[in-house]
Nucleic acid binder design. Structure first.
Length: 257
DNA sequence: ATGGTTGCTTAGCAA
């Protein structure tokens, strides 16, 4: 089974690229982030014609996540359901057969010390709490998405320039480590222990041709599932050419799923 | 040089 994640930075602006990519890569499951559309205008019919079921959790202008899959879903969860008032559409979990799949768009945090950064840290803790109360570590479960945290310095093109900045700050790295401590494996790092490869490059200052990027899009799964992971590839080609997203897709292959 | 690019919405925000 091929499971992928891609922050498309507006599904409407990226529809042509998305359809071409689905046809070329043929993932079984694709998690999308920053769709930026409300659910009633999500382009489900067009995706259906390519052979994908879609579950969406979106809003106008900002945020928005979705899962596409060859198989139909059941058990769709939108938001943490933790009683906290939150209009931001960033958390969607579905069941595809025996597998649970989450598509996540972790808050960016804007700058360390701001309200948005505090919201990011609180959001990561809410994710951890959701796992503790709603998930089973012994079952196949995968969370894919734009996590907006580069876990280690080797995930950063220039660690000194990024030291203590948003996406690299020790507090958010610690918060992500707490989430993972529940029992999630970063399968890219598991299979590529020495790689410095990135998934996001700023649109500005020729960041992509200079490869000034960060690895902030992740595929995190339970250990039993991670044991069946055969490869994880960052599709850098999808960041090239006219009108790309600022993120590249990440694609993982799993045996026995 | 406190910039720079993109998307949504239409001037300013978010990333």
């Amino acid at each position: 089974m091929k499971i992928a994640t891609w922050n498309v930075n507006s599904i409407r602006a990226r529809m042509e690229r998305l359809c071409a990519w689905l046809a070329a890569q043929a993932p079984d499951v694709l998690c999308l982030q920053e769709t930026k559309v409300e659910d009633n205008v999500f382009p489900a019919l067009e995706l259906e014609s390519l052979g994908y079921h879609a579950a969406a959790y979106g809003q106008k202008t900002y945020n928005g996540v979705a899962v596409l899959a060859r198989q139909p879903f059941d058990d769709i969860v939108r938001g943490f359901g933790d009683g906290i008032e939150d209009a931001q559409a960033r958390f969607l979990v579905v069941r595809v057969g025996k597998l649970r799949v989450g598509s996540l768009y972790v808050p960016n945090g804007q700058a360390v010390g701001t309200d948005k950064f505090r919201y990011k840290l609180a959001w990561l803790e809410r994710w951890r709490a959701w796992l503790a109360t709603h998930a089973d570590v012994s079952q196949p479960l995968v969370f894919c998405g734009d996590i907006n945290v580069a876990p280690e310095d080797r995930d950063v093109h220039d660690p000194e320039a990024w030291r203590d900045q948003v996406m690299c700050h020790p507090d958010e790295r610690a918060a992500l480590a707490e989430v993972r401590r529940w029992g999630l494996v970063d399968v890219f790092r598991q299979l590529n222990p020495d790689a410095s490869q990135y998934t996001w490059w700023d649109y500005r200052q020729l960041s992509f041709p200079k490869n000034r990027g960060l690895r902030i899009d992740h595929i995190l799964c339970t250990q039993g599932m991670a044991a069946g992971c055969r490869s994880v590839v960052i599709d850098r080609d999808a960041r090239k050419g006219q009108a790309p997203s600022d993120h590249a897709p990440v694609v993982a292959e799993f045996a026995d799923l």
